[in-house]
Each structure stands twice: as C-alpha cells, then as structure tokens.
Design a protein around this nucleic acid. Structure first.
Lengths: 149, 149
DNA sequence: GAGCTTATGTCAGAATGCTGACATGAGTCA
DNA sequence: TGACTCATGTCAGCATTCTGACATAAGCTC
C-alpha cells in the first residue's frame, strides 16, 4: 500500500514517467549540444528551418514547443549572430519568412551528429516494432490531451 | 524523400515526439493547476512530500527533475507561505527534512483531482496492456539514456 | 587521524521562457 | 464597404530555472 485514496502514485504514473523520460532526453541533448554553443530550442529552430525553409516566427514557435514571444527573442539573436536571415519587410501580411544562412547551415551540420547519437542511444535495446509501438502510443497520448482540451 | 543524409527527420523522430508529448502534458497540467495557484514543479514537490515525508531538498529536486538550486528557491517560498516546514537546524549532517503542514496537505488535495483528470484524459483510448507497454518502453528509454551517459 | 571524494544547502547572477498587451494584416460575413 | 474574428510580430515585465561558486558534513581509504 504505497497509495492512499486521494493521491497520485508517482511510482506507477505514466505522466510522471513521461516527464522523467523527457527530462532525461533533454539533459542528454543539452550536454551533447553544449560543445557547439547550442541548446535544444536553438537546435530545433535550425533543424526546422533546414527541413522547411521560409517558416514564420509563429510556425517555428509551434514546432519547437515554445511561445511565439520566446521564439521571437531567439530569432533576433540568431539573426544578429548571422545564422538566419529575415526580409526587412513582409512580402505578404505580417509574416517574415526565415531562412538559414550558410553559417547557420554549417553550424547545424556540426550539431546534428551529436543529436543523432543521443537518439540512437535512447533507442538502444528497443526492437524496430517496439519503436513503432512507442511512436504510436505517444501519438495517442498527444491526441487525447489535445482533443479534450 | 523528406530527408537528406545529414539531418534528423523531425516527422519520424521518437525524440521529437517525446518532446511533443511532454509539452502537451505540461501545458495540460499547468492549465489544470492554474486555478489553484500552482504549477507543475510546485505540485510535484507537494506530492512527493505527501508520499515520502521528510525528504531533503536534494531528494525533492531529483524527484521533480529540477536542480537542487531551483528546488531550494521553491522550498523557501513554500516555507514562507506556510505549506511546508523545515527544522532550523539539521538533525544529522546538512540535510533538512521537509514536511507538509496541514495547509500544504489541504492545498495538495484540492489540486490532486485536477491532476488526476489530466492523466486519465491522456490515457483515454489506450487499453490496459497498451498502458503497461508504454510504461515499459519509456523505462527502457530512460535506462538507455542514463546508462550510457 | 589525514586526505580524498562525494553529497548537501545556499547565495549570486545570468539565461530562458512565460503572460499580458498592443498594433496590424488577412479572412469572413452580412 | 464595414464589422468582426483570428493570426501574426513585437515590446515590456515577470517567473522560473539554470550554471557557477563556496562552505560544510559524511563516508571511505590509507
């Protein structure tokens, strides 16, 4: 009996375990990215831009799971440091499409190997079907949380 | 072909999906806890103390997945507001065992129902065996990330 | 006991992310 | 056209969490 009637047993809670896994992944990612002077959000932003050039600030924010205000601060820094470019004026509406510079692309490529090795490490010990199942189950959780919101 | 040889395809990355799930859970939790003037870390701290009274600052930090410095800031606030108590002097070593006050316990109980409903919502659509499998797979990821660190 | 390593509590400063607010542009609809 | 709604970019202020640093206590080894 590790649990009274009113509490949430942390030892058996999937939510708690999900947070633990995310925390472990984040720590491993930050550690892997630190030698490149990068953090997780910064890397996510660059990776998103590599795969879908021209994303707006708000789209990048949604993709990196931060608010558009936070992403705006980050983009201003990246722009100042020469990793990305944005047009001075919006070609349409207020959206400023962002693109990687050669410097940004180069910086991303250095970090990518480190990030990939973290993911490989995380999945070591899981079979292909198990990885597919994990993918499916996580998608189910996300959908349930969003739909009923 | 959505993927060149150097990148990490975010659409199929389990790491990215794990971050997405964690982000969705966190958002749902923060929203559920806001009416009670609480956030996730604060709730985790109180819940840990309810289940294992007398935990030290460092142990609470590990349980809530923040640094001990962050937990120290939080504990000082909780103590000031009367939710927890710590002895003025360490009974042994430097460890200050923390305990919930009646006010802290009462505050926790109010929040618990909200938190539990979020977890139930997240698991809607998953069978019992699927939940067990998700638990097992997340544990595997955590172990792999930690062991090879 | 002396020395080493590890863990703890704490302070200070910096980085990061959030909420609130505002102005502006696009789309919809009557 | 005008009114309404929604999404966007941005500024400001605040909250949260982090890294770095220090002193101290426990445990272990010699």
């Amino acid at each position: 009996m590790s649990q009274d009637s009113t509490g949430v047993d942390l030892e058996t809670s999937l939510g708690y375990l999900l947070k633990e896994a995310s925390s472990a992944l984040r720590a491993a990612m930050e550690e892997a990215l630190r030698p490149f002077g990068m953090n997780v959000t910064r890397y996510a932003c660059l990776e998103l831009l590599a795969q879908r050039p021209g994303l707006s600030n708000s789209e990048l924010a949604r993709g990196a799971f931060v608010t558009r205000q936070s992403m705006n601060v980050l983009l201003q820094a990246l722009e100042r440091e020469g990793y990305v470019t944005r047009p001075a004026e919006a070609p349409v509406g207020k959206i400023l499409p962002t693109r990687l510079t050669p410097l940004g692309r180069q910086s991303l490529e250095k970090a990518t190997a480190a990030v990939r090795s973290v993911e490989v490490r995380m999945l070591a010990g899981m079979t292909g079907p198990e990885q597919s199942e994990a993918f499916r189950l996580l998608q189910s959780m996300i959908r349930s949380l969003r739909d009923t919101a």
